[in-house]
Design a protein around this nucleic acid. Sequence first.
DNA 1: GTTCTTGCAAAGGCTTTGCAGTTCT
DNA 2: AGAACTGCAAAGCCTTTGCAAGAAC
Lengths: 149, 149
Amino acid sequence: MVIIITMPRKPFKTLEARACQAARHSKRREVIFEVLNSGHSHLNAEEVHHEARKRLPGIGIATVYRALKFLCGCGQASEFIPADGVARYEPGGSRAHHDHLICTSCGRFIEAVDPAIERLQEKLAARHGFKPTRHKLEIYGICAGCAGK
Amino acid sequence: MVIIITMPRKPFKTLEARACQAARHSKRREVIFEVLNSGHSHLNAEEVHHEARKRLPGIGIATVYRALKFLCGCGQASEFIPADGVARYEPGGSRAHHDHLICTSCGRFIEAVDPAIERLQEKLAARHGFKPTRHKLEIYGICAGCAGK
DNA sequence: GTTCTTGCAAAGGCTTTGCAGTTCT
DNA sequence: AGAACTGCAAAGCCTTTGCAAGAAC
């Protein structure tokens, strides 16, 4: 049986260079880009909005959502959706790929990569005649800090 | 910095045996359990509802959601949330763990497991002082069928 | 009879969209 | 001027919840 995934949450479409260049210089987008790159990471839209407001008090949540989709489309940000279904955003595109260890006790996100796992994933996909374009690995559990308590 | 994940979508809580036994015999729950085990897999709540209606025309969507959470809590079903943020359900608990290859062209879900990857994931977590409880690996790409076209 | 379950409708939470006004080129 | 961007409020979608009625024990 074939299951069709309908995507009510519109995935950002990868924009062509043309579209990215057609973009105008916008203070809002710049600020949102800065927020993503300011050390805070894995922020959700609301948190990005909160940070952005500190710099541009009038900025609206819709603008934040629009800018995030735009940045994702241009490869300047990436979106990921953890088990609670609420999108979170990181600077950069897939270039800086990494997986996540997510602490279910304190909510901390730890970034990690293991080249060996990456290779095995490729092989696993190949074994099923599948051409992978991207993947997502999330490990939920208890982080070192929380385990110590 | 620590990020707290708020979980607006309430994760099903693992029910104690007591709670599972306190449950009454309910035709609805039985039917929903059957739907999950009927060969259709990776159904979302709406699809489960649709199937369940064929057998019990009057069943409501709220009942479906409640039953799914309940079954997940008892380990008789498991929930997973793919990149579109819409929950999908499978029969069985974590016992029958597997990862997913998801075709972005036709929407097909392919189940796969690779013990070597599982082991490496454990090691990766351990390397970060992290005690994993569960994990999720999704590989998005093009399946063999779609690639052939 | 008490406790659990259900349907319905309403509410919630996150995200997108329509539209009129604003900004950039 | 023309095209893109923005804020606001409204709408959408998926999911949860309150409540009165129903079913199970």
